[in-house]
């Protein structure tokens, strides 16, 4: 077992003892177990799967950020995190539409990387919401 804390700019989102976590790393998904070697990785929007100490599986959508682990202390710093069960699919759909529109228009001074990031975030949230089985 090791400790994991998920911290967003708004609050400490999660803190607890867990047995494993699967993270959407910058180079692809990776699993982290107890006594993992010290690691720092970037995080892409994706699905976070936590198995806590009583073997419950928690499913989360996370956005861009970083993960660091050393001496069985894991810290996940992300712009936003959300439990799969709390995702508002309608809102995510709307955000996706907005981002698509902005990319399609290409008019004026839109911030393309930003719109792309927004699109990626929205797509990720929808995918995770659907994977919770509804």
């Amino acid at each position: 077992m090791f400790t994991l804390s998920i911290v967003t700019p708004e609050k400490i989102f999660y803190e607890g003892e867990i047995t494993s976590v699967i993270l959407p790393g910058g180079e692809g998904y990776l699993g982290v177990l107890t006594d993992h070697a010290p690691l720092i990785t970037s995080i892409k929007p994706g699905k976070l799967t936590i198995r806590d100490k009583s073997q419950n599986t928690l499913l989360l959508a996370v956005s861009f950020g970083f993960f660091e682990i050393s001496a069985n202390h894991g810290t996940l710093l992300v712009d936003s995190a959300e439990f799969a069960s709390n995702i508002d699919v309608d809102r995510a759909r709307k955000a996706m539409e907005r981002a698509r529109q902005r990319l399609a228009d290409k008019a004026g001074n839109i911030d393309i990387p930003r719109a792309e990031r927004a699109l990626e975030r929205a797509r990720n949230r929808i995918a995770i919401a659907q994977s919770r089985g509804e």
Partner: peptide, 18 residues
């Protein structure tokens, strides 16, 4: 922090995001 860290991707890229 005298650990030998693994970086994924490179430290530069992590810095760029950080």
């Amino acid at each position: 922090s005298h650990f030998e860290y693994i970086f994924e991707p490179s430290p530069e890229q992590i810095f760029a995001g950080l």
